[in-house]
Structures are given as C-alpha cells and as structure tokens.
Write a protein that binds this DNA or RNA. Structure first.
Lengths: 353, 353
DNA sequence: CTGAAAGCGCTTACAG
DNA sequence: CTGAAAGCGCTTACAG
C-alpha cells in the first residue's frame, strides 16, 4: 500500500535503499571502522536525502551506554562562597537530564592554588568522559587541557571566563569588558570631576592574561571614551587574606585622596571591611557578586553597588548546552553573555542569582 | 548466577514476582480497567517494594503516543508587546522538549476582550491534550475552565497571575502583592512627607478580583506598615486608548497636586506620553514591564522606574514544569515567584528579560 | 479478567 | 568488509 510511504525513514529504510544491512548503516552513522568507502558514500547520500534524524529513544534504549560529563570548577573557598551558585545551577541541570542517562563527575579545585587545578585535571579519566564543563581560571593550564580535549574530540563548554582562540563548544558568562565598562558608567554618577578613583585587583594569581584585567580594561576605557579626567590609580594585591589586603589598601589611601574604589571581583567585602574599620566608609565602593559577605556590607551601606552576572544560570545553561550537543547534536550560540545586574541595598532582597 | 540480581527490576521482574504477565503489570501501572483488585494490590505492592521507575525511553519508543500541550495566553496587542516575551520562553522550552515527542498548540486571546478568551478555550480539544499552560487573565472564566481540566485530570500550570484555591500543578509569575510593596518602597525614596501619590489601574476588565488590585494592595500596605502619611489617590481607567487615558489623568491632576504616579501594569507608557505632552513630566512615574514603549520613556527620563519580572522565564519554566510532571511524574515547587527587577535608564541596556 | 506474541527503532555481539 | 539475529524495556493489539 502506498500508505506505507510514511514509513520511509529510519535505519531500516536506509538499509533497504542502500542494499546493505542495518548493522552496516549503524557503522556508517557512528563513523565506526570496517566499512568500504563506497558503502559509506552510498549510505551517507541516502541519509542526507532522507534527512534522517535518529530516534534518540531507541538509541538510548539499545545502547546502554552512560554519558558522563566532567565538571571542573572552583570549590567554595574560605574567602568567598561565590562558587556555590554555579554549582547549584549545574546540579539543577544535572537532575533534569539524569533521566536521559547522563552522569556528572565533579572536580573542584582551589582558586588560590594553581596546583590543585592540575591535580583535579589529572583525576579526570578522559576515556570515560563525553563532555567537559569548565571554568578556565588558570589560562595556560586550561589551554593545555582543552588542547588535550580537542585531540580526543571531547566537546567542552567554558563558564565564568572565556579563553579565545580555542574550539570550545560555547561560553556562558559575563562579558568581562562590558561589566567593567558598566561599572565605570555607574562610577561616573558617583564621583565628581577630577576626584581620584582606585582600581583594586585581588587574586593570588594575576598574570597578564587574567580575566580581572579585562574588567579593568573596560573600566578604564569608559573613562577614556567619555573623556573624563579623573585620575585612576590601581593596585594588584596578590594575597587574599584580610591583613595583607587591608595593609595594601591603607598604603594607597595614605598617599592619595581616593573618592571611590572599584574592586574587580567578589573580594570587595574584604575592602569594605577595611574601609568600615578604618572609618573611611564614606568612600564609594563598587564590586562584584552576590556573596553572603558582600550582601551584608551592601545592606550596611559599606558597599554601594554590586555587579552580578547570574552565576547560577551560567552553570545551568552551560551544562544544558553540553547536553544538547552531545545527545541531540544541537549547536547553540557560541558566546552567551549573561545580563549584568546592578544590585543595591534597595533591591538586594529580591535578587535571586 | 547471582550476578543476575542486578536485573531485578523492570516490568518483566514485576510480572515474574506477581505471577502475572507483563501486559497485566502494564495495565496496573497505567490504571487501566480490566484487572481484579487482588491482582492490582499484589502488583502495586511489588512496584512499591522495588521502587520501580519506568524507563521513559522504552515507554516512548513503544507507545508512539504524541504528547500535546495547549498554551493559552494573550497575544501581542496594539498597546503592549509584553506578551512577546513569555511566548519566546515557551517557544524555547518547546524546542528543547520536542525531541521527546511533545507538541505545542498555541491559543492566543485578546487581553482586552473577554469573549476572545472564551473563544480560544472553545477551540481547545481537551481529548487530545495532556497538559495546559495558561495565563488566567479573566478570573471567573479561568476558574470555569480549570474546573473542566480538573474533572478530566488534565494538569495545568498558571503563569503571570495566579488563582488561589485551585488544583494547579504550579504557578510561575510575580508575587503581585510584593511587587506592589516594593514599588511603594521605591516610591518612599522619591516623594517627600505628605506629598500626594496617585495609583492608576488601566484595564478594560477590572473586576474586584483583578490581579492589578493585588499590586495596589501591596503598594498601599507598605505605606500603612511604615506609617507614612502621604495621601494616596487612585483611579480605575477602563479604556486603554490614549485619548481616554489622558483625559482621565488630566481630570485628577487638575484637582490634585500629585507628586508621583504609580501605574499598576505595562500601560505606564500611555501615562508617560500624557505627562510628557502636558509638560508635567517632572512628576515621578513608576510602572511595570520592559516593553518597547516603556523602554523609550525610561530612556527619555519620563518614566523613573520599571518593575520587571522575567516574563520570558515565566513561560520557559512554566512549560518545563508541565513537561517534568507529565513525562517524568516530577512535581516541583507549587509557587514560583520571579525575582523583582528594578530597571532604570542606567541599567536598562543590560537587561534581558 | 488475563496472557502470549509482536513490535517500537535502534545497537550489539557473533559469525563469516 | 558485511549480514542475520537477538535484545534494550516497554506497549499494543489480539485471543481467550
């Protein structure tokens, strides 16, 4: 009956048309070895002609293969609980896709310790992993790692910060440059002409590619673009403990009359603590991220603005993108910049990451 | 071999233990008729004991049933493109779950026309629908409709506004009361003691259960809670065209010295237009939603604050909740209140719904 | 009220 | 390099 035309799809039909067995079609579909080039070409032509879409239910049912994704991000540190949020998003997405046979393996490193990053990488058995979600905090080491992934054709997604020039599936995170630029825009409202502004980078690992520097660049360029004349000072603080940070800030403040401070990451609470204790809290203070400590200082008025970029959503969407690609062969946008939220003491109670 | 212990799961094992056929187990699982109570009890006991989780791949593969969800929301109207956003979120979620055999049928009604709501409902063939996502804009009519859904055991999810006391699967949308309350909190910063404030409700269909009134209530209660003495006026405008709205506002402004205006929905742009034209734009103005028109008036300074509540996310998450329930039998949170975003001319460029 | 058999669209050994 | 057969865990008729 011609009604059977509607069945003209699927592996069986491809096999029929190509005059081969279903097993051979399967081999071609999965690029397995042991098929003559001639057969490969014939089968592929038919696949294309039919616009064949595999039935993922049947596929998953038949191949009892588990899909494993490795997640490589910082753990929560003493100084900041920022990474709680991305992890929550990742866990949420993981729960959603677990019915489809996806398993997550989490590798948490210490943001203050490059060695721990390498250690965690060493723990990942790439032969058992179908995709990687990672925050490439240490540029050089990350580049080395993703090259290894590329050579094994394991897809990977960046979150939180990006490394250009690599073959990542996609990126979910802030537009670092723009978030610095927006911070400067806010700053403009807060300082008067000619008043001095201090940029503070706090991280044990500031090399010349560090993502904090992208924010700084955006910040500075706003002032250049708008032809503003405020002097901009900056310090790189390479220890993260309170004693060291406060000492560093103190040094600058003694020598300069600083009206406003811009801290390029979530460690702004450490600065707020110092300003408050030293009685210098009337200085304006802008920083990043909705951590517990930052929130407290925001509410007490010691931090004026926090810039937030949906850390939870970064994790959620990053993992989903990996899933869509690996399971459904769907490729989404490569660069996915999160909205830049401005949090003040007025709306912070209503903010959800 | 005892290694086979690991297979002790699935329909086959249940059937073996219950001494019945797999067909009978299937009947019990799906509450189909034609099984003796005794058999039902035995099988259910074993299901519970085994904590049986059906394999959704096998299920979908075997039962070629398509799942259809009906989506009942307002279409874009002349006065506001607000509903573009929820629809985008719904479409996005729909694309994600379409590989799992889910189809969407969209029924768009006119927010200004109760009749169109009923007409769209009449178009929905409930016998072909496994779930409904709806914005219950007209309370009474919605209640009638969801009662019908309940009697047919069709699950449904509310977005944008909620109706209490019904058996909805869940709600995704603003906490209306709180968004009014927050608006008042903002308002407090903007007006001086004793200055008059005007509340404006604009809708063709304001009955005494209308969701705009919940926002008004929140707004008023803030002033009561904080013991603020500002006189609060209010008008209900039951036509949405510019001529009518402007006339209504004009009437009030001539008789009262109003310092600030609070419009309880996205039609704030109509008010902004009037205030601007009449040269009264120095009055403070707060309203709702990130529509094209509102954005323009926000940028020009005629609207001071917009309250937004993630319309796209409402649609996306609402549909996903329906999917999780119908396909995976997963029940999520019942009440899902969206974050309340405050948009100003400063951060509006970075806001994404 | 119940069972036996076929089938959903793939993949996986195994045999050649 | 290729094919025939069995099987993944369910559901669907059909027969009784």
């Amino acid at each position: 009956m011609s009604a059977k035309d509607s069945e003209l799809t699927g592996v069986k039909e491809i096999a029929r048309r190509a005059n081969v067995s279903r097993g051979t079609v399967d081999r071609v579909i999965h690029n397995r070895t042991g098929v003559s080039q001639k057969t490969i070409d014939i089968v592929n032509a038919i696949i294309k002609e039919l616009d064949y879409q595999p039935n993922i239910f049947a596929r998953s049912l038949a191949s009892k293969k588990q899909v494993v994704f490795a997640v490589l991000i910082p753990g929560v540190s003493l100084e900041t609980n920022y990474w709680e949020e991305p992890l929550l998003g990742i866990t949420e997405a993981g729960a959603e896709i677990s019915p489809y046979g996806i398993t997550l393996k989490k590798y948490l490193y210490d943001l203050n310790d490059k060695k721990s990053f390498l250690e965690q990488i060493a723990l990942i058995d790439l032969s058992t992993v179908q995709g990687v979600l990672l925050a490439p905090s240490f540029i050089e080491e990350s580049e080395h790692f993703v090259k290894k992934l590329e050579s094994r054709k394991i897809p990977y997604v960046f979150i939180n910060s990006d490394i250009q020039g690599h073959d990542s599936l996609s990126y979910f995170g802030p537009d670092l440059y723009k978030s610095g630029y927006l911070s400067a825009h806010l700053m403009k409202y807060l300082v008067k002409e000619g008043e001095e502004i201090l940029i503070v980078n706090i991280s044990k690992e500031i090399d010349n590619q560090h993502h904090l520097l992208r924010k700084e660049e955006g910040f500075r360029n706003y002032f250049i673009d708008k032809k503003l004349t405020n002097p901009i000072l900056k310090i790189d603080i390479k220890q993260t403990d309170y004693a060291y940070v406060s000492k560093s800030i103190e040094d600058v403040l003694q020598r300069h009359h600083v009206a406003a401070v811009f801290v390029t990451n979530s460690r702004v609470s450490t600065v707020a603590k110092y300003l408050k204790r030293s009685g210098a809290a009337n200085r304006l203070l802008i920083g990043f991220d909705y951590t517990k400590e930052n929130l407290a200082y925001l509410k007490s008025g010691d931090i004026d603005f926090l810039i937030c970029q949906k850390p939870r959503e970064q994790g959620y969407k990053g993992l989903m993108a990996l899933y869509q690609f690996v399971v459904h062969a769907k490729v989404g946008e490569k660069n996915n910049f999160m909205p830049i939220d401005i949090i003040t003491s007025e709306n912070c109670d209503f903010y959800i990451n």
